[in-house]
Design a protein around this nucleic acid. Structure first.
Lengths: 237, 237
DNA sequence: CGGTACATTGAGAGATATCAACAGGCGTGG
DNA sequence: CCACGCCTGTTGATATCTCTCAATGTACCG
């Protein structure tokens, strides 16, 4: 299962053989731009649970996630946590409205990123409308995901939340690896709970329930989607 | 109270005396660009409860909201509704990832918009990186609001939700009209409930409770914030 | 083999939803 | 100008879902 997720992404040193390029903002760059762009970037690696950046911190870098999964979250003063998204290879992080990060980002498993200083990135992007448009598309896609998630958080039951999560996680992974009934879930139950606005116990119970009715099989490090049609129905659109 | 909200925005025919320009994407345009831009736009008016555009519909226009308040919402197949935001004068609507609207938009009170066909807008914006960047900023700001709202939906109690809503609604209005203890609430209790992921009864009870403890006074068409500090404390950051 | 962190399961409490009745404001029409 | 009806909002009683607290189980790692 680990190998499965590790297969997403690239350990290559060069953009030329970067496996996530087609999914990343870099896909908008031509060969020459790419070479210039490559010189601006530094690879960085993070171990599981390491923090890549924290909320409220000055945001001085952009990141292209090239390998691994990250959790993006916000904390309330009393420690309650809401995970606002999981980042997968190809995702672009670091855009802010205020200059400070709007959320924190941790590595869930081993993570590799391309890091760019904002100033050099912005100088590079300045006169490249195609890159700006691509970044804009990414922002709009995230916005659309965020709104979809608001519906989940505000209006769905626990069962619908979990089913929706599994189905859309499958769909996201499928875009990179092709379809599979076996879903790796590198994040903990607590992460899933904080993503869905539930407690860990409710998530656990709901998983068990879905297994009992034959929709999923709980396996080490993930689940197998035994009855995807049923799961989609439970997700209620 | 109606006059209060109507004062936001402009009935003027020309961009030159448009009151929302400094808040809108137009602020990034110089005088010449503005004049060209003006020729691309058509004013349109919507009566309370009229739908400006609907989810899933092909999105062929962009909109600058210049007067009034709109509710932006998504529906589940069984009719459950989640309001993903309220739009105020200056807000820019119509960006999509897929070409289809990700949500529906209704006028709450009398609404005036500048409407642009996407094709002419995109032709106009093509070689204007400053406009692209401005639009990008708007998208990122919305993204940041969306994530803040996820925290509210997933992790806050009813009382915290209502208090947070009142405080941030006040702050949004203050940005346009200056601070005031009197908050117009042009949206219905049902709208507020669907925004906060609650039922109308819970919203009503919570308003009453906040009034009983002296935090607000419920008045026709809105509330008066009697104890803003207390409201902020109840909002839990 | 024991410890620790994570996950599951159970019992009970509590917050919010649901169902139902009532009140108040506003416009309409007599 | 008043009465009626409708729509929105409020309040109450009860139900239910999810949370909380607690115990047990399980996998991984030293």
């Amino acid at each position: 299962m680990k190998a499965f997720l590790a297969a997403i992404g690239s350990n290559g040193q060069s953009c030329a053989d970067c496996l996530v390029r087609p999914f990343s903002i870099c896909a908008s760059l031509d060969k020459t731009e790419m070479q210039e762009f490559e010189r601006l970037s530094r690879h960085a690696h993070f171990a599981p649970c390491e923090t890549v950046f924290a909320e409220e911190e000055m945001a001085i870098s952009f990141y292209n996630l090239i390998e691994g999964v990250m959790r993006l979250y916000k904390l309330l003063p009393d420690g309650r946590r809401q995970i606002v998204g999981f980042a997968l290879p190809g995702d672009f992080l670091g855009m802010t409205a205020s200059g400070r990060n709007a959320f924190s980002a941790d590595a869930i498993n081993a993570v590799a990123v391309c890091r760019f200083s904002k100033v050099s990135f912005q100088r590079f992007a300045e006169d490249k409308p195609h890159l700006l448009r691509r970044i804009n598309e990414f922002a709009i896609r995230e916005l659309s995901q965020a709104r979809e998630h608001m519906v989940l958080l505000g209006r769905r039951s626990a069962e619908e939340k979990v089913a929706t999560f599994l189905v859309s996680w499958r769909d996201r992974l499928a875009r990179q690896n092709g379809a599979s009934a076996t879903l790796p879930l590198p994040m903990s139950r607590q992460d899933i709970a904080d993503y869905l606005g539930l407690t860990i116990e409710t998530v656990s119970r709901t998983f068990t329930k879905l297994e009992r009715v034959g929709v999923i099989e709980i396996i080490s490090g993930g689940v197998r989607l035994l009855d995807p049609a049923r799961a989609e129905a439970l997700a209620a659109a």
